[in-house]
């Protein structure tokens, strides 16, 4: 699963799994945090290209990373979000703090 995490320049790219729930989110949070701390990346990009399902656990992952990275002045991006994922993000008002790109 490690290949789902990539550092490009100052960005940590996180490829989200097909289903983002509590079961998967624990691992994503933990690994992303390791990259943020060890590689010193400035920004985090969540790639939802393969994601077909996400519940509030996914929101928790994004908010948690946002809190960490914004402390260092970084930004969080969500890319390749389909209508469903976008709707889930917007219900929580996340579009106000992170950049959502289709």
């Amino acid at each position: 699963m490690e290949e789902n995490f990539k550092v490009i320049d100052n960005y940590l790219m996180v490829k989200m799994p097909e289903e983002v729930d509590h079961h998967k989110s624990v691992y994503i949070s933990k690994t992303a945090d390791e990259y943020i701390m060890n590689e010193g990346v400035g920004n985090v990009v969540f790639d939802f290209e393969d994601t077909r399902f996400m519940d509030s656990s996914g929101i928790g992952v994004i908010i948690g990373r946002y809190k960490k990275i914004s402390y260092f002045g970084g930004k969080v991006f969500a890319i390749n979000t389909d209508t469903r994922i976008k709707r889930t993000l917007m219900i929580c008002g996340l579009h106000k703090v992170i950049e959502i790109m289709e």
Partner: peptide
């Protein structure tokens, strides 16, 4: 601390 967003019930309602 577990990265829970506190949105569970809100999602169920929505």
């Amino acid at each position: 601390e577990m990265d829970r967003s506190g949105m569970g019930f809100a999602f169920m309602e929505a």
